[in-house]
Nucleic acid binder design. Structure first.
Length: 280
DNA sequence: GCCCAGGAGTGTG
DNA sequence: CACACTCATGGG
């Protein structure tokens, strides 16, 4: 278990997860479960603080940052498979795939359809403020399934969800904690198929949830940015199924990491591509 | 005002 | 299978 390599900005600010914020001193702060966690780089070490303080924080942070992954080994494997990715990962050596809570991830990426990252953050913060539990004066936990079951359609609409409100509403009605527990046992392909049965979950959202929520590193979510990257760098175009097949063949069991390198680079490449960290 | 956004659902050819 | 259209709205 080690958190090396780790770059907090590359990991927490790259659009995998939407609630972490960078502070002026370079620390990153965000709600994890029912605590507000603050991470700070101190030389080679990672300082972890939380309020309310809880002895489990360290374990939760290690799980969130997937400390059990041997990221260098994953990078070597990907570089061996493809020179393009080897180049693309060069300045992203501290990027780690995170492990979000499954439920939070499902809701977050269902909201992430056809919206930009600043807006996705706002929708999530609004849900937390209205249906989560207060942690500090202005930080709220992500609402649990039971918390959100209490929200009516108009409640959800008032959080600025737009047409996504009805997806979230039906999702709350359909799901149970037991169902989510069942989903954790499934392998990638089955999980993906089951997730797609949920209202508002298509190919891309299912892959995001499989990757960032359920920890399936082979998942390769394809959004507009990845489409551009696959076209620009590999000359690959076509349907989701076709592109996913290409990615699976090319990148194998760690395709999720390859996807993050491509995503980050493609956004940095765009004409106005510096907007990843621009919120607040 | 304009364009676009980490898409999905539905209908049609 | 592919494409076209709609969805509801805010950020740049």
């Amino acid at each position: 278990m080690r958190l090396e390599p780790l770059d907090l900005g590359q990991t927490l600010g790259c659009g995998q997860t939407f609630r972490w914020r960078s502070l002026p001193d370079g620390s990153w702060q965000g709600p994890l479960g029912n605590q507000l966690v603050c991470l700070t780089r101190v030389g080679p070490k990672l300082q972890i603080k939380a309020q309310p303080d809880d002895p489990h924080v360290r374990q939760n942070v290690f799980e969130h940052l997937r400390a059990a992954d041997d990221v260098r080994s994953i990078q070597r494997e990907l570089a061996k498979r493809d020179p393009v990715i080897a180049t693309g990962m060069k300045e992203l050596e501290g990027l780690r795939i995170v492990k979000m809570d499954e439920w939070e991830c499902l809701i977050s990426f269902t909201l992430a359809t056809y919206a930009n990252i600043p807006r996705i953050s706002k929708m999530i913060e609004s849900l937390a403020r209205n249906f989560g539990r207060r942690i500090t004066d202005d930080v709220f936990s992500f609402p649990t399934l039971d918390d959100l079951k209490r929200a009516s359609l108009s409640d959800l609409s008032r959080c600025g969800l737009g047409y996504r409100a009805k997806y979230i509403r039906s999702m709350c009605k359909e799901l149970s904690e037991d169902r989510i527990t069942e989903l954790k046992r499934l392998r990638y392909e089955e999980l993906r198929a089951e997730l797609k049965e949920l209202p508002g979950v298509g190919d891309k959202v299912a892959d995001c949830v499989a990757l960032f929520g359920f920890g399936n590193l082979e998942a390769f979510p394809i959004d507009v940015w990845i489409e551009r990257a696959l076209s620009r760098l590999y000359g690959q175009k076509g349907s989701y199924r076709r592109l996913a097949g290409f990615a699976h063949e090319k990148f194998g069991e760690y395709a999720g990491y390859a996807q993050e390198y491509l995503y980050y680079n493609e956004r940095a490449h765009a004409p106005n591509g510096t907007c990843l960290f621009s919120e607040q």
